[in-house]
Design a protein around this nucleic acid. Sequence first.
DNA 1: TCATTATAGATTATCTATCATAAACGTTTG
DNA 2: CAAACGTTTATGATAGATAATCTATAATGA
Lengths: 211, 211
Amino acid sequence: MTDDENTTTAGRIAEAIGERIISGELQPDAPLRQDHIAREFNSSHVPVREAFRQLQAQHLVVAVPRRGVRVAPLNINSVKEIAEMRAALEVVALRNAAPKLTSSHLARIELALIEGDAAQTIQEFEMANRAFHHALVAPCAMPRLLASLDGLQLANSRLVFAMARSSGWRPRSNQDHRLILQALRARNVDQACSLLARHIQTIERLALPSS
Amino acid sequence: MTDDENTTTAGRIAEAIGERIISGELQPDAPLRQDHIAREFNSSHVPVREAFRQLQAQHLVVAVPRRGVRVAPLNINSVKEIAEMRAALEVVALRNAAPKLTSSHLARIELALIEGDAAQTIQEFEMANRAFHHALVAPCAMPRLLASLDGLQLANSRLVFAMARSSGWRPRSNQDHRLILQALRARNVDQACSLLARHIQTIERLALPSS
DNA sequence: TCATTATAGATTATCTATCATAAACGTTTG
DNA sequence: CAAACGTTTATGATAGATAATCTATAATGA
């Protein structure tokens, strides 16, 4: 879904470790020892180091010279930061995607919406959520922007999983998504963008109920 | 200024190659052979491959499996893409930075402005330009957003250098920057944000005078 | 004849295995 | 508490193996 870098050993390792970090299987600040990982993936330390550089660029690990890499810490401030970045960038993307939206694009968006309704676990819900937002902006044909948004979505999922782990989780409504799709079907781009921005802020508010 | 990853060999190589790509010394689509670069930097291929992964994350090179990496192509569409991303993100950053701006921050912004006025070459101008925009948003204390903006600034510089190479360059006015600083001194954040967004769009219009 | 295809050799990316060095860490002393 | 020592670990070098790609030449067919 995100990247098909699974052609090289380094890409495979980066993808596998990245998934573990996002799912929470690897805890924040956990050290990643390169020869342990190399043994696990039946490789040498060279592709492992390449994978570390890739994960570092995604902000999933932090590297300190001569002390290796650790899983990136989770700090509550990044919830707001990521939400603000997503709100700003997804609106730009949607505004560029809207004129190119075909009925097949709309069908794909609706499919993600329906899958979100059917989600029973937080993992299923997050997968559908990512699919919805991705389908919404994919037609904009701005590769750099889409790559940024993919990274922000992954970082957001990591935060969602971490918070669900401490606060529990119950199925949520997709009413926001449904209204956005309605606005797009009505060709009301301004409303769709405004709903999208507000929707992302809402997610942030769910995360920080006190503020 | 951008990153102090010069503690490791891989970081040094990535920085050096990145500068060559941005300056235009390395042409788009030029192949980067890992053992040539290793010889040049008196290293083995291991840190070179790490540097490639880092440059790939910055969109400065593209890698195709089993065929190595090449300097990323320059396409005219990315001018608009980068301008839109910068406009959206810098406004977010400035809005978060404004409440924290001290007089020392304002002095640093003004210094970059004055250095831009004194710039005689496009290299000097771009350096001052980057310093201005960086100083403008740095106090927002949003590390992920600042990293994104740094990458976008570098990509923008690469496009500016490439276009100057074909169309020539003459010193430009910093009137936009001056007005933004004035608005900030007057604590008029809304106006500063609006001026900043328009300023970035203006740069895009300079790049594509036909549209 | 000309264009296309097949083939052989050279180049190169990718990765393994092993080793060397130095920094960081933990433990045991003085 | 602090210094010394051994262990662990990151970083990188070196050599070599494999396989994919590229180039140039030869062969084939229209």
